[in-house]
Design a protein around this nucleic acid. Structure first.
Lengths: 223, 223
DNA sequence: TGGGCAATCGTTGTATGCAACTTCGGATTG
DNA sequence: CAATCCGAAGTTGCATACAACGATTGCCCA
């Protein structure tokens, strides 16, 4: 879970508070709409209000919390529309990133294949034993592909956009069949990237993202 | 120039400092690599270090300054690579946004045409009389199109990515011919959007961005 | 004379007190 | 009885003092 974006560490206290509060949100322990009081967070994290404020401002910039002047911050709440926004963006950016990665030549396909294999081991029958670990590997897989696209802004943009509890814990909502398909996509993407076929890579990633999109839509329909 | 992203106003002092420092960077008055000392900024803006720190953290999140723990922040410096990253991203996202805008039906084409006309008036012969005003209208034009795409994350992503002095003051580097072509693209995009032809709109915007890309590359080649 | 060490200085990081603002409850008045 | 105004409580916004850390300089020693 410690997948903190870009070395923005601003000090032990502020960083401590940031990680704790962020984790609290991404794991869903704090529901959308809940107010996060500075003094409460300060007491809970064991630091003063100053670093807490800094952490909250950072979370505001990342879109995880909502800020209202003189009123405080509350956990950002999401709906189906947010999911659609995120996945439609991903369905453009991630395939494009895969295309770039295919032709860049700077990708370690062995490492990527290893990641795909380790994910298989965590869910051999489509039933994950450790969702958190699987999520971590999945995020790493996607980030590895994107980093090979060699466009830091692309990487940052996507990682900032997928910061949503629902997206973060996506695998906990997958059916065994959907999960098996998702893992198969990973292997196919490795093949496409190994073959350095940009069209293939782009197409596989597009399928991968859109499949995930519909899987999540289906699982959230009744919420 | 007062084109501040998303109502994140955190208070008069912090907001004041933020706008001042941000403007200082975007206009190029502070060169890349220059250190921005908290106490110096505090004295200059007339507020204490606390709101200044808040402003600097915000600018850090937006990528306008570089932060190093215990050392301070310095104005982010850019190179041709940054320009390429930004424009390659824009060349994917803006056309896609135009496509969405073409089919969304939520676009006020009259307003957009008006913007294009006002830009013409500011540079009838391809020689802009007021670059700042032209820049403001151009940003507004692009944002208007994007907002019609009805994906707030797309809008935010692009506006966060184009925060670079070079991109911001882009028109000051245009040749009269390049500027005339750019303005013509705007009118053509209005036509495509009026016709609600997604392919046309996407294609025009793609040309528009890529033309700008090469114009800037040409003008920065000797830097 | 050169290298390493330590003290000092400048800067950032954190804590805390106070000011400003919002909100909510109750009293007051029509 | 309702609407409004006033005030108290709670929260955030800002300023300031102090602590922690990094850089630099000068000194000491080999």
């Amino acid at each position: 879970m410690n997948d903190v974006p870009g070395e923005t560490d601003t000090g032990p206290a502020a960083d401590h508070a940031y990680r704790l509060i962020r984790d609290e949100i991404l794991t869903g322990r704090r529901a959308g709409g809940e107010w996060l009081r500075e003094s409460e967070m300060a007491e809970w994290t064991g630091v003063s209000r100053t670093p807490v404020r800094e952490a909250l401002r950072r979370l505001t910039a990342e879109g995880l919390v909502r800020y209202e002047r003189h009123r405080g911050v509350q956990v950002q709440s999401w709906n189906v529309r947010d999911v659609d926004e995120i996945f439609s963006l991903r369905s453009v950016l991630e395939p494009w990133g895969s295309r770039l990665a295919a032709v860049s030549g700077s990708l370690d396909v062995v490492e990527l294949a290893d990641l795909a294999n380790r994910m298989d081991e965590l869910a051999p029958d489509g039933r994950p034993s450790d969702v958190d670990k699987l999520t971590e590997l999945n995020n790493l897989f996607h980030r590895t592909v994107l980093e090979a696209a060699d466009n830091t802004r692309l990487t940052n943009v996507i990682s900032s956009v997928i910061q949503l509890p629902l997206v973060w814990r996506t695998f906990s909502r997958y059916t065994p069949e959907a999960l098996r398909r998702s893992l198969a996509h990973h292997h196919e993407l490795v093949s496409a990237l190994t073959a350095r076929d940009p069209d293939w890579a782009e197409s596989v990633m597009c399928s991968h993202v859109r499949a995930a999109w519909h899987t999540i839509r289906a699982s959230t329909h009744e919420i």
